[in-house]
C-alpha cells in the first residue's frame, strides 16, 4: 500500500528542486492529494506540469495509486 511519505519522496527525488506536500485524502492509501512546487514548472502549461508529476508514477496511477490529485506551482 503506498503512503503519503513514499509519494512525497518519489516526487522530490524525480523532479529536480521539487517540494511536495502529500496527504492521504481518504485515509485508504489509494487516493492522494499533492501540492508540488518545482522550478521546472516555470513557463509550462498546467497540463505539462501535471504530466511531469504523473510520469514519476507511470502505470501506478490508476492502478496501485487509484488517484493522485494535483496542484502544481512554480516557486515565487
Amino acid at each position: 500500500m503506498p503512503n503519503a511519505e513514499e509519494i512525497k519522496q518519489r516526487i522530490e527525488a524525480a523532479i529536480p528542486g521539487a517540494k511536495a506536500e502529500v496527504e492521504d485524502w481518504t485515509g485508504g492509501g489509494d487516493h492522494f492529494r499533492a501540492t508540488v512546487t518545482a522550478p521546472v514548472f516555470q513557463g509550462r502549461s498546467r497540463i505539462a506540469q501535471h504530466k511531469l508529476v504523473y510520469e514519476v508514477f507511470g502505470q501506478e496511477i490508476g492502478g496501485r495509486i487509484h488517484a493522485l490529485s494535483l496542484k502544481t506551482r512554480s516557486p515565487q
Binding site: 498546467r46 497540463i47 501535471h50 504530466k51 504523473y54 496511477i61 490508476g62 488517484a67 493522485l68 490529485s69 494535483l70 496542484k71
Partner: peptide
C-alpha cells in the same frame, strides 16, 4: 494522460478534475 475524467475543448486536452 493517465486518469479519468478528461476534458477536451476544440480538440485539445484541457485537463482532468484538478
Amino acid at each position: 494522460w493517465p486518469t479519468i475524467p478528461q476534458l477536451f475543448v476544440k480538440g485539445e486536452l484541457v485537463g482532468g478534475c484538478d
